[in-house]
Nucleic acid binder design. Structure first.
Lengths: 200, 200
DNA sequence: GCGTAACCCTACGCACGAGTAGGTATGCTC
DNA sequence: GAGCATACCTACTCGTGCGTAGGGTTACGC
């Protein structure tokens, strides 16, 4: 039944989806939806939570803490893009719909923050183990960039059903890791002849 | 007057914003809004177009075709993040609101596609000039990743008003360019001991 | 065969907000 | 100062869609 809701929400958006259509799609009538899932808002939150939990679980299932950083990143990417490929509707709800709607933006931000923190933590751990220091903000921005890049690629994947998630993950890894590896190794880019702007 | 609309749309979202509130915020009454800007949908599209055009213009103003690839990327990033920093509301409308609403998602996708194509074109030009071949899809995914990373960092910037756009651009450049430069140089990452998956 | 209870539906009330009709003030022409 | 146009507002209509009230149907107990 949540499946029907996710499907309709993903197609129409939160406001565009009518409870009638969801009920219709689920093969039951509206009062039943209210009886089982509560109001529209609660229903949407339920969808959000289920999809969010599923996604996090899909990643957690394949990531062991004793793996190397690049292996963990690779597995996460694989799991994540595999998940998105298999649950395109769910991802569309999470990523495209929930972000704009004020009542739910908070939920989403929290989920996203957890992911960013995991990525930042991974980077930080690797950096510290090599004795390099780095500011909190610096890490956060890099983590945001990596997460955003991945989300964007996931979005691309949703619109290209013929694409192979695993191959896409490899491509993504090329951008993320080859870049990150350089950063971790201490390579950094600096602005050309202007007022020097130390990257903190 | 469009400023008021953008402000309200960014705070409430497309559906959440009432024409009354927009009119109120602009200091005029509702029929005036209809007289000048037309229906709510037209009004939103007008906002979208203005912000989109402004953004593209801000970037076009600082990018000359005779610059090196990294210089162009750097200037674009600077201009883009500077723009977002100066027009947080506008960016919120473009990025957070318009994406989810079916009637406008197309507009947005078109804008985004143009940006992705520019980035992909830049990458391709650099690659070809070094004699390397690469598939269309490969380029597209990398471009999507870079664009998504930048959008994500822009999003971060919106939520951190105290951050300096230029410094953030430098950080972003570190991720994007250091990674991209490696890719351009031919370095690539491959999955560990599994069924070999040539990155095409 | 009649009470009743679980289950589900059709059909409605009601609020909210987009878009408009009709009226009022200000200024300009002659 | 009468006629008229422009600029704007208050106050309405009307559609849409959330949430619910009240009725029908099936199955079981007695």
């Amino acid at each position: 039944m949540l499946d029907a809701a996710v499907k309709v929400f993903s197609r129409r958006g939160y406001h565009g989806a009518s409870m009638d259509e969801i009920a219709d799609d689920a093969g039951i009538s509206k009062p039943m939806v209210y009886a089982y899932l509560g109001t529209k808002e609660e229903l949407f939150v339920a969808c959000l939570h289920r999809e969010g939990t599923r996604m996090m679980q899909a990643i957690a299932d394949v990531v062991a803490p004793d793996l190397s950083a690049d292996e963990r990143l690779w597995r996460s990417l694989q799991a994540f893009l595999g998940f998105v490929g298999a649950h395109r509707d769910g991802w569309a709800v999470l990523y495209r719909q929930a972000r704009g709607e004020q009542p739910f933006a908070g939920e989403l931000t929290a989920l996203r923050r957890r992911i960013v923190e995991v990525v930042a933590g991974m980077l930080e751990h690797t950096l510290r183990s090599e004795g390099r220091e780095v500011t909190e903000t610096e890490l956060e921005v890099v983590a945001y960039a990596l997460v955003g890049a991945t989300e964007s690629v996931a979005d691309w994947l949703v619109d290209h059903p013929e694409a192979d998630p695993e191959q896409t993950a490899t491509r993504m890894m090329n951008v993320a890791w080859v870049g990150a590896a350089q950063l971790l190794a201490g390579t950094s880019w600096r602005p050309p002849n202007r007022r020097g702007e130390a990257p903190s």
